[in-house]
Design a protein around this nucleic acid. Structure first.
Lengths: 341, 341
DNA sequence: TTGTACGCGTTATCAC
DNA sequence: GTGATAACGCGTACAA
């Protein structure tokens, strides 16, 4: 690979002038500029960003670490990040933790070794907390989405999951439901815990004593939801169902819906369903009913993450920022206001 | 940020020893090793990969450039790449051209400036050919998926689109269809042209004269497919439909299916449908019929791209490699063998 | 306008 | 086992 010196030699000048030409800086005579440009073309020279960033102590790049790249759920977030980053003239690099905390922290470490100026990290399992703490102590600029670091001094973009649960429960009460079962999942995920707490609080607010609460434990995939509901329906026999199920995740809800439909139970007439995430079914072999759900403003959060990180990078603000976003209710066909009888 | 020299000073030794410790190399006394490790922890030192890669002339990283990160279609490809890359101990960085050829070439240029050791590029619009040529001439290691560069000397992983079309047409003939309309789209996409050619050839092989061929032009999104079919159905009035439609893309097929169902036309009884890509509907508000389609071995291609690139990087082979993959037919519910009458 | 000299943080070479 | 030293390719004071 041709270096800046090779170009200089060929153009018959010093590397300084070549550097100026590459970076569109003034202070080069037209004649030299042309000769240098010609030499660049002849040699097929490209700037070595490694060396450049090394001396500049700046890469003009930010890294994004997600749990996986293969989940539609992240599309809005990615679009938000991409849309906003151009505004700052930065490049974005994405990588995936492939659903492994170890891989994820590996990639964060990779980025921290001066490969990027700042990192945007989505979510995390609870057991990553030690890692997050190390990250905070390192002083490396980053913004963390959907993982509450509490009092730790970090840029933190959060979603109010308790509020989401209250939206769901309130809506179901509006629809005339009283006996609402929560389908919980993945206790290692922070959001899952919060949604569960939100459910309990909302039910209590509606006057349901905690001892009357129904909670079904399930994994958060469609398959697990399906299995959970098959067993649940089987074990109940002919006993009456709750008025409604509120699922901590849409995927679980799709699985549950499938099991209910197969059992001949009519949604929303016999039982109403509310999910969480505004996600889509992964399978398409069934006529899934459009699911009432809780939507998170992911695109907006992606843009905010970029903005916050850039502020941090430019040192325009001193402290770290915490932002709280609120989800909204999306009413579809698995819930409906029942006729007053 | 603490540098290797800071660590050396604190540990009371030279940078050389610190380097050995970081890179797990032998030739350091146990005593020094411990003192260095302690200094590293106290200073919160992290290796600067920029400097390391600069001197090593190697980043141990490959870059992947896709048209977009927000399309399920790429999931298998991404998984294939990720699954295989670990085998080589490399890191992968993804970035998206955001469906803009300019952005895409920007990112390729970015990667080429010594940020990665090699690049995997998916697809391309036909008008990128000039850019591809530049890329080839640069000598930078890369593998190009789904874009035939012809005689250009490049690692090229291809899909036989003509073969896919012949699978579709043959299957429809098997189902008793004779009058098969091809729904073409996006002439700027190489694959679209090939599929069209494949359709024409297959029909001719079945004895249908070229002048009898039916081709409907349409964009490749679901919305465009829907609009195309609404207009088409309207303009035809009561005249008979073809026996079948073969779509150059599943998305178009979903749109067409929607329009057909709305018009009260029964699939597959009145008309059969075959798509291409083994894609999923983007919308879920309709009970889409599982679509018979042509599936591409994207995961395998992703793995192959990594393998080929690594061979190239290690210089174990001299020339560039060309690989041709063949799609397969996936029979679902939009086609069926009709009863012999 | 132009060139020299130095430093960025790292690793490899070669003495000791 | 240990430590100078040079080199990677670049940007930038500073001097000319």
């Amino acid at each position: 690979m041709a270096s800046i010196k090779d170009v200089a030699k060929r153009a018959g000048c010093s590397a300084t002038l070549v550097s100026r030409v590459i970076n569109h800086q003034p202070g080069v005579s037209e004649e030299k500029r042309e000769r240098i440009q010609a030499a660049i073309n002849e040699l097929g020279y490209t700037q070595n960003l490694l060396a450049r960033s090394l001396v500049l102590k700046k890469t003009n790049t930010i890294g994004v670490v997600l749990d996986t790249l293969c989940d539609e759920y992240f599309f809005s977030l990615i679009e938000g990040i991409e849309a906003r980053i151009d505004h700052y003239g930065y490049d974005v690099l994405f990588c995936s933790g492939r659903n492994s905390p170890r891989k994820k922290s590996n990639y964060i470490n990779f980025f921290m070794k001066n490969r990027v100026d700042g990192i945007i990290i989505y979510g995390s399992k609870l057991d990553d907390m030690a890692f997050i703490e190390k990250l905070v102590n390192s002083g490396f600029p980053f913004a963390l989405i959907e993982n509450d670091v509490g009092t730790l001094n970090a840029n933190n973009i959060l979603l109010n999951n308790e509020y989401g649960s209250s939206l769901a429960v309130d809506h179901l009460f509006d629809c005339g439901c009283r006996n609402i079962c929560y389908v919980a999942g993945e206790p290692t995920i922070q959001a899952a815990q919060r949604r569960r707490i939100g459910y309990v609080e909302a039910m209590k607010r509606h006057g349901v004593p905690e001892s009357d609460l129904l909670i079904l434990e399930s994994g958060w995939t469609e398959e697990e939801g399906y299995e959970t509901f098959r067993k649940y329906l089987k074990s109940r026999g002919k006993r009456a169902l709750p008025d409604a199920f509120y699922f901590g995740s849409d995927q679980t809800a799709f699985g549950g819906m499938k099991a209910l439909m197969e059992a001949g139970i009519s949604v929303p007439d016999e039982v109403m369903l509310v999910g969480y995430d505004d996600d889509k079914p992964r399978h398409h072999d069934l006529p899934y009913l459009p699911l009432t759900t809780i939507r998170q403003p992911l695109e907006e959060m992606g843009r905010a993450a970029v903005d916050i990180l850039m502020e941090d990078l430019n040192g325009s603000t001193s402290g770290k920022k915490k932002l709280m976003y609120y989800p909204s209710l999306v009413i579809r066909e698995t819930t409906c206001r029942k006729q007053e009888s």
